[in-house]
Computed example of a mutant assay.
Amino acid sequence: MTGKGKTPNTGKRATSFDVAKAAGVSRSLVSAVINGTPGIGVGPETRAKVLKAIKDLNYQVDAQARAMKTGLSRCVAAFGDMKNPLFLQVLEGMQKACAERGYHVLISGQSEDEQDRLDMLDLYRQRRIDGIVTLDDTDYESAAWIARVRESGVPYVSVEGYAGTEGVASVLADYRDSIREALDYLGGTADRYPVYLEAYEDRPERNWAERDRIAAYEAWCSARGWTPVVHRFHVHDEAWLGLYLEETAAAGRGLPPILINWSVGAVPLYRAAWKRGIRIGDELVLMAGDNTRRSNAYLSPSLASVEIPYAEMGEEAVRLLLEPSQGERGSKRWLRASIRPGDSVPKG
């Protein structure tokens, strides 16, 4: 084990021996903390002592030498679109889980060129990363990419992708359960029960997440003997939303509660309601089934929503990547969402 840094008062570079002496442990235990050596248990207090000694002595591990010795870089690649705020949430969780295990996160930005993904395989062959986590679109299932992953042998986990592909490790949100919880939160009666508005953006085809949401809504209504009411619209089609509000209000029965699939789709709905003098949270009860941009608190009134746990999904992806003993390689992990209250759904 080699390292850089200088011991106090001597000006000499600190070594693992210096760290072991300062922490009152053996050098093998220091190595176990730094390298995560399997089979050597290290208690939390001992680990804290070693980490404190490393910090106090400014001990720095020579990553290249360690990789040659252990075959590990102690670094995980995170791949996703840097313009996507959801990717930043995944990174937040990955960073937390990696820090707990003495790992670092290497961020690989996504572009239109599929070569970006292939470049990460070269990093693995060069021992510069120990695995890859990607944040994918929910409909992403590239057989060509998985073939290259398997050929290289790199540990790999997709967040949100490959829901329908067996043998590929994925961390996924339980969208069925999240919609059931949202509908229970909204409530309703036989005369006024939630209508489901489904916004779409680039492609009108439904991916697995949207299919799960719709299925959950239909099952929830059917269990109560109510007829599901689903409307689809382009996420920027404010004109359609305005017409829907006008026609529904003109029917004379009042506006039903609305569950909209994405929070971004609620923004034009807010505008359409405001232009027509419809008060959200009063005349119109509204909730989003997915707070895609964490924008609910910035709307007025605040938007009640389902919070998809992207940070926790990043954490779980790292655990699945680095701790295969938790489950077989290629398993699926489904995480539950939570309700984020807002003034658009009055309670109490």
Rank of each mutant, 00 (worst) to 15 (best):
D116Q: 08
A77G: 13
V42K: 15
R101I: 04
P38V: 02
I34G: 01
G11R: 04
L91H: 08
Q110K: 08
L123I: 01
F17P: 02
G11N: 03
P44Q: 14
R27I: 12
K52I: 07
E141A: 14
K12F: 11
P44E: 09
L72D: 11
T37V: 13
V76P: 11
K83L: 14
L123A: 11
L121Q: 06
P38N: 09
T46C: 13
D56E: 06
K6Y: 10
Y140D: 06
D130L: 12
H104P: 00
L118H: 12
K55D: 09
V76H: 15
V25F: 15
L51P: 13
D130Y: 10
R66E: 14
M120W: 08
G11Q: 05
Y59M: 08
R125W: 03
R128G: 01
I129F: 10
A22C: 00
N84I: 10
Q64I: 05
E100P: 02
D81A: 02
A147I: 01
R27M: 02
K12D: 12
M120K: 00
R27C: 07
Y103C: 08
A53Q: 05
L57R: 04
K49L: 08
E141Q: 13
A20W: 14
S31M: 03
I132W: 12
W145T: 08
A78N: 06
L88H: 12
K21G: 01
G102E: 01
D18H: 05
D122R: 08
L51R: 14
D56G: 05
Q95T: 10
A97E: 06
R101M: 12
P38T: 11
R127S: 15
T70D: 09
A67K: 05
V76L: 01
A53T: 04
V50F: 10
L88I: 02
V25D: 15
I107G: 02
R47G: 13
G36I: 13
G71I: 13
S26F: 07
N9S: 06
D56F: 11
L51D: 09
L88R: 07
K83N: 15
G24H: 14
G109M: 06
